[in-house]
């Protein structure tokens, strides 16, 4: 007999794998946004190189928020959430697993993809590696904020969620981009450290808030 948490992991993974749209959606969104920037700003190599870190970060932020809103939404609608609550198991681990699986399927591919697109936007290779590192630390933060937005608006699933979350994500965005821009000097470590700290402290606070937000719908 499998444990509750292993079932959660397997169930969610199978759902993602069986529906190509759930992990292709963010990829398509990311690629099209990346393409829009050179079309809007022109293909000047110097200009794009200067903007590229920001372009990639913003595109990932938006692509992520779209997908993470629905982490808890479907479980709420089909009644799985009822069963989870009735099971009496710790919801903290359950929510963490759900967020992780979502991150694994929708953010991780984007991190690898961002390495490829950084060449198209003329970002130097060293900076691109830092970009991947900052995304690795930053995207889980976005996932958790997105999950919180989704948990707050379970019944409606509307734009309100993302408008709450984007201002909250700013530190991650700013620290990530600052780290990339200072990839040649020592300040880099300072910003990476801060980003990691932000991630570290976000985990307990945001997941607990997600649970509080889910509970709102069951009072």
């Amino acid at each position: 007999m499998k444990s509750f948490y292993f079932k959660t992991f397997q169930r969610d993974s199978k759902v993602y794998l069986s529906r190509s749209s759930s992990f292709l959606g963010p990829i398509v969104f990311f690629l099209i946004t990346i393409t829009l920037y050179p079309l809007a700003f022109g293909s000047d190599e110097e200009k794009l190189a200067e903007l590229s870190a920001g372009i990639i970060w913003i595109s990932i932020l938006l692509a992520n928020l779209l997908s993470h809103q629905f982490i808890f939404n479907e479980d709420f609608k089909d009644g799985s959430l009822d069963l989870v609550l009735a099971s009496g198991k710790s919801l903290f681990l359950w929510a963490s697993i759900k967020i992780f699986v979502n991150w694994y399927f929708s953010s991780l591919p984007l991190i690898f993809l961002s390495l490829l697109t950084s060449f198209m936007l003329y970002l130097p290779f060293d900076a691109a590696l830092i970009l991947a590192l900052t995304l690795f630390l930053g995207t889980p933060i976005l996932s958790m904020f997105g999950a919180l937005a989704g948990a707050l608006t379970l019944e409606r699933g509307n734009i309100v969620g993302s408008s709450i979350v984007i201002p909250m994500c700013l530190p991650a965005l700013i620290l990530g981009i600052l780290a990339i821009q200072s990839y040649k000097n020592e300040e880099l470590f300072f910003y990476i450290f801060l980003l990691a700290a932000f991630l570290f402290f976000s985990i307990p606070i945001l997941i607990a808030s997600c649970l509080g937000a889910i509970r709102l719908h069951f009072e």
Binding site: L152, V160, M168, L206, E219
Partner: peptide
């Protein structure tokens, strides 16, 4: 964003709690 949350719930208590969570995190 906080004001836009006011009308997102059917239950009074849910609105109150959602607003508190967002205000606190903010």
């Amino acid at each position: 964003a906080i004001i836009s949350l006011f009308s997102s719930f059917d239950r009074r208590a849910s609105t109150d709690q959602a607003v508190s969570i967002v205000v606190l995190i903010g």
